[in-house]
C-alpha cells in the first residue's frame, strides 16, 4: 500500500478546472518530483493536498487513511500530517528563528517545551543554521530563510513534506545550500513531493518524476525514463527545451 495515494483529484479556480483528474502515488521514504510547464497545475496539486485550494473530486489517502477535506476540522487533520514550504519566504517576521520553529508545536499542539526546543535545535543543525537561532527573518538571506522554513515545516513531524519551487526565488549562489538541506532530509528518509525546475537536482534525488501539462498527468516514470526516453511528444518537447538550458 502506498504512503500517499492521490486518485483522480480535481480542483477549480472559479469555473476554470485546473486539475483534471490527477492520480499518482508515493511510497514511504520516496521522493516524487512534479515537473511541467508554467501554469500546468503543479502548485495547485500541493495546495489541494494542504487544503488551501478546495478539491472538487477524487480521493487522497495518507498512510491508509482517507483524507476528507469537507470541514475545517478535517482540513486541519490533513494539515496535521503534511507540511509545505512555498517558493516565497513566509517566515513570521515578528518572531525569531526559534520562535518560528516552536510556535505551532507549543501553542497549537501544546507539546512539551523542552522536547520541542531540543527538536528545533536539532532541525536547525540539520539545515546548518544553529548560529541563527535568535535572528529575525529580516536578518537572514533568502537561502537562510528558506532553510528555516524547511526546519519549521519539519518541527511538526509531518508524515510527508511538500516543497513548491523552494529555490526559485533565490539568487543562484544560494540555491545550493537549500538543495543540500533537502538532500539531508532525503537521507533521513523523509517522504517528499517536490516541485522543481532544477532538473539536475530532480534527476539526482527523485525516485519518480511526474510530468504534468494543462492540469493532467501526461507521463510518469523514473527520472531516467522521463529525461532520456520520454514516450509522449509533450514530455519530449518539454525536457528537450528545459534540459538544453
Amino acid at each position: 500500500m502506498p504512503h500517499l495515494a492521490v486518485s483522480d483529484v480535481r480542483a477549480k479556480y472559479g469555473s476554470l478546472e485546473v486539475l483534471k483528474g490527477i492520480s499518482f502515488s508515493i511510497e514511504k521514504g520516496e521522493i516524487v518530483a512534479l515537473v511541467g510547464p508554467s501554469g500546468s497545475g503543479k502548485s495547485t496539486v500541493l495546495r489541494a493536498l494542504m487544503g488551501l485550494t478546495p478539491i472538487t473530486g477524487g480521493d487522497v489517502d495518507l498512510a491508509g487513511e482517507r483524507l476528507n477535506y469537507s470541514s475545517s476540522r478535517e482540513v486541519r487533520a490533513a494539515r496535521d500530517r503534511m507540511a509545505i514550504v512555498f517558493q516565497q519566504y513566509n517566515l513570521f517576521q515578528n518572531m525569531t528563528v526559534m520562535q518560528n520553529l516552536t510556535l505551532a508545536p507549543l501553542k497549537i499542539k501544546r507539546w512539551d517545551r523542552a522536547e520541542v526546543e531540543a527538536e528545533a535545535r536539532r532541525l536547525l543543525g540539520l539545515v546548518g543554521l544553529s548560529d541563527k537561532i535568535d535572528a529575525y527573518s529580516d536578518q537572514l538571506s533568502g537561502g537562510q530563510q528558506q532553510r528555516v522554513a524547511l526546519a519549521r515545516a519539519l518541527a511538526l513531524k509531518p508524515q510527508i513534506l511538500l516543497l513548491d519551487e523552494v529555490t526559485s526565488a533565490l539568487d543562484p549562489e544560494l540555491v545550493g545550500e537549500v538543495l543540500d538541506a533537502i538532500r539531508k532530509l532525503a537521507a533521513e528518509g523523509m517522504t517528499m513531493v517536490i516541485v522543481s525546475h532544477e532538473m539536475g537536482f530532480v534527476r539526482e534525488v527523485a525516485d519518480k518524476v511526474v510530468f504534468m501539462d494543462a492540469g493532467q498527468i501526461i507521463e510518469a516514470g523514473t527520472p531516467a525514463e522521463l529525461f532520456d526516453t520520454p514516450k509522449t511528444d509533450r514530455a519530449q518537447n518539454f525536457f528537450s527545451n528545459i534540459l538544453r538550458h
Binding site: 494539515r79 513566509n90 505551532a104
Partner: peptide
C-alpha cells in the same frame, strides 16, 4: 502578507490563532 497567513494555516492554526499570532503582532 497572504503568504504568512497561509504559512499559519498550513501549520494548523485556526482563524483565531492566525489573528492572535500573525495578524495582531503585524
Amino acid at each position: 502578507r497572504v503568504t504568512e497567513i497561509e504559512a499559519g494555516q498550513t501549520l494548523g492554526m485556526s482563524l483565531i490563532q492566525q489573528i492572535r499570532y500573525i495578524v495582531m503582532p503585524h
